[in-house]
């Protein structure tokens, strides 16, 4: 059973995360609601690639003190427009190959359907105990072209961030 522990309002939202710790692996799947601003969509249509970064961090619960971070992962989805074909191409740094979509919403939906991913835990970690999985997705401003970054940093239209959301993995 999974439930959001803390969620912040944003244009990017983590809707649901299903995670299971099995042995030395973490199985993750979930749903993200990625809603780009008009400025970001325009930038994509004008040929500017946009990177959606999904970060995951696994913590082991410790009584009385703060939780211990066991491992963290990052997946970056790049969305760009292919003018000749009129399609939106999505690729990521975990898998080879690309996916193309007729609309940007289809591409965002593709990105938002997480996994299922199998993530390896650090060696020596047992699956016993209580864990906490933090998930965050945001638009990576640092991946934008340099001239666009000052504007992106100062404009709310570019600050698309779900903040950290907390999830309880199943063991």
């Amino acid at each position: 059973m999974c439930w959001p522990v803390l969620s912040a309002r944003a244009d990017f939202q983590v809707i649901a995360i299903v995670s299971t710790i099995s042995g030395s692996e973490l199985q993750v799947s979930g749903t993200l609601d990625l809603d780009l601003s008009e400025a970001a969509e325009t930038a994509i249509d004008k040929g500017v690639p946009v990177v959606v970064q999904i970060r995951l961090a696994l913590y082991r619960h410790r009584p009385l003190v703060w939780d211990k971070k066991l491992s963290q992962w990052s997946v970056r989805f790049r969305i760009r427009y292919h003018g000749l074909s009129g399609r939106y191409i999505v690729d990521n740094d975990r898998e080879d190959g690309i996916e193309s979509f007729a609309s940007i919403q289809q591409a965002l939906q593709f990105v938002g359907d997480l996994g299922p991913w199998t993530l390896e835990l650090p060696e020596g970690q047992d699956s016993g105990g209580r864990f906490r999985l933090a998930v965050r997705t945001r638009l990576d401003i640092e991946s934008l072209p340099a001239p666009l970054r000052p504007l992106a940093y100062t404009s709310p239209a570019w600050r698309l961030d779900s903040r950290w959301t907390q999830w309880r993995p199943e063991s």
Binding site: K46, G47, Y81, G83, P145, P147, P150
Partner: peptide
């Protein structure tokens, strides 16, 4: 041929789009 046209067009399109931010960046 198509990819060449696509790349050139996309880069130019991007450059046109970034004209404002580029100005802002340079002025900044």
């Amino acid at each position: 041929l198509g990819q060449s046209v696509q790349t050139a067009s996309a880069e130019y399109e991007q450059l046109v789009y970034l004209r404002g931010p580029l100005k802002f960046s340079f002025v900044l």
